[in-house]
């Protein structure tokens, strides 16, 4: 007989491997949303994703203005790739985007990380990537619990109602 029993998620392990504004926020929104639903949440930052938990850069993330076909001008016209490459354009567009997100009530990255840990979510950095970028624990947000290997990360992903999400 077919079983119709619902099996709610118990744990999510989210991997953030990219450092664009939108990629980091995608991970943060998903992690915070999971915590708010009472789902055990581990958030793992690796490679360029580390930008999102590095004190110096986390509140100044950029969105790519070249090589981003979805980028539009205010008003909806396509954003010319040539324009995106001009000095200062990426910075200006990114700060405009952060401002719009702020108006929607989206917190800056440091506050978002605090919200996730306040609810019991746990944030980790990848050992290999931290070494590669020559970072130390002191360079990272206070909300980062530990720098761990990918093996240790997989150990955190146990349980049959666990999902790994790669953003």
């Amino acid at each position: 007989m077919e079983t119709k029993e619902k099996k709610p998620l118990e744990k999510v392990c989210i991997i953030c491997a990219k450092g664009n504004l939108e990629d980091v926020y995608a991970s943060l929104v998903m992690a915070n949303g999971a915590v708010m639903e009472g789902i055990e949440t581990n958030l793992f930052f690796t490679f360029f994703g580390l930008e999102g938990i590095t004190k110096k850069s986390m509140n100044h993330l950029h969105t790519a203005t070249t090589g981003n076909p979805a980028m539009k001008m205010p008003g909806g016209l396509p954003f010319p790739t040539m324009l995106g490459g001009l000095p200062g354009v990426e910075s200006a567009v990114s700060s405009m985007m952060r401002k719009q997100m702020d108006e929607l009530g989206m917190p800056p990255v440091d506050e978002f990380l605090e919200m996730i840990t306040a609810g019991g979510g746990t944030i980790y950095a990848c050992r290999l990537a931290v070494d590669m970028f020559k970072l130390t624990k002191a360079d990272l947000s206070e909300e980062v619990k530990d720098i761990i290997t990918i093996g240790e990360f997989y150990e955190l992903c146990d349980g049959d109602r666990t999902q790994i999400i790669f953003t």
Partner: peptide
């Protein structure tokens, strides 16, 4: 309503809300 706005209400912070 967001947990963020409740956290800034002055009644509880987000940790206390949880």
């Amino acid at each position: 309503l967001t947990i963020r706005s409740v956290g800034k209400s002055g009644i509880v912070d987000i940790k206390q809300l949880y």
